[in-house]
């Protein structure tokens, strides 16, 4: 008897428990449902517009395909071999790296200097100056390229006129007339276009610096330069890496500027990989497009730049963690 009642009591309790958990998991299931529903558009677009293009670009790289219909003529690794053997690819590759290298070593330190000036309490109208430095960033790159063609013209161009009038040069420079000078011009415009955003990055960094350390250093008799070298620089290293990272990725993918400014010329002197690929995919002078080859070139370039991006990315994560 007793046992019976206990059993039924136990049953009751367990039923109660079961009901409770069932109710709770039902609630949970309901909120999972909402979570997935909210995520659904992103997941669908991720699969179709992010993942599929990446997979597709690998798939197409193994075909000889002119972009019409679905590819059928499989050629294995031939496209990759051709890319690796092509001296024009390596020329564009070299140019991309030269461009990126100079952009980084010029922009990163100089934008810090400007940020330091803008951050100084002794400067009047910092917001005004900041806005002016920033303006080029919001302009359409393709239009900048077109305007710059005029700024860098040999006769009557802004660059020559201003340098001549300041007596920095005696004779006008033919900025776009030769490969090396044209590359210099592209670098100058690249610096100009992206400079403002790096200034803002640095300013954000400078604002995180704790003020009391400087007070203490002042009391210890450290001068401005010492303060900069021993306090500011070490504290800014994480920012240095992040900014270098952004600048590098940005420069590796330059397309609009070279397309509209020099179109890779003269004589492939400013041809960069994104432009090289574009030519094969969409601008085959007379011949048919070579989409498979373009994809293969994209993958080779992607792999090469990934190595650098990953190294910088690892550094970002390492220093990012140390900061907090």
């Amino acid at each position: 008897m007793i046992s019976k009642s206990t059993i039924s009591e136990q049953k009751l309790v367990s039923n109660e428990l079961e009901r409770k958990t069932r109710k709770k998991s039902g609630l949970k299931r309901k909120h999972y449902m909402w979570c997935y529903l909210f995520l659904a558009p992103q997941i669908i677009l991720y699969l179709t517009f992010t993942l599929w293009p990446i997979i597709g670009s690998y798939y197409f790289a193994f075909f000889n395909w002119n972009g019409i219909g679905w590819p059928t003529e499989i050629v294995g690794w031939e496209n990759f071999v051709e890319v690796l053997k092509d001296s024009y690819f390596w020329n564009a590759f070299k140019n991309s790296f030269v461009y990126t290298f100079f952009l980084v070593i010029i922009v990163v330190p100089t934008s810090l200097i400007v940020a330091l000036i803008l951050n100084s309490p002794k400067l009047y109208g910092a917001a005004f100056f900041r806005t002016l430095f920033f303006l080029p960033v919001v302009l359409t790159m393709s239009i900048v390229g077109i305007i710059m063609q005029n700024m860098f013209a040999f006769e009557g161009g802004f660059m020559n006129e201003i340098l001549l009038s300041m007596n920095i040069i005696d004779d006008p420079i033919n900025w776009l007339g030769g490969p090396n000078l044209a590359m210099t011009s592209v670098v100058i415009v690249g610096v100009w276009k992206g400079f403002g955003i790096k200034v803002i990055y640095w300013l954000a960094g400078l604002q995180t610096l704790p003020k009391d350390i400087y007070e203490a250093a002042k009391i210890d008799g450290a001068n401005l330069i010492q303060q900069f070298v021993y306090i500011t620089v070490p504290l800014l290293i994480p920012f240095l890496i992040v900014i270098t990272f952004f600048q590098t990725v940005w420069a590796f993918n330059v397309f609009d500027l070279v397309k509209t400014f020099t179109n890779g010329g003269p004589l492939f002197g400013t041809d960069m990989v994104p432009l090289y690929i574009y030519r094969y995919a969409f601008e085959m002078d007379g011949g048919l497009p070579r989409m498979g080859f373009a994809s293969a070139a994209g993958i080779v370039y992607g792999m090469a730049t990934m190595v650098i991006t990953l190294i910088l990315g690892a550094l970002v994560r390492k220093y990012g963690k140390n900061r907090y």
């Binding site: 024009y88 002078d285 048919l288 070579r290």
Partner: peptide, 16 residues
């Protein structure tokens, strides 16, 4: 006309 033209064309050579 539909076959791929040589990479370095007369125009490029003269510019070069």
């Amino acid at each position: 006309k539909t076959m791929a033209p040589p990479r370095l064309q007369l125009n490029d050579i003269i510019i070069g």
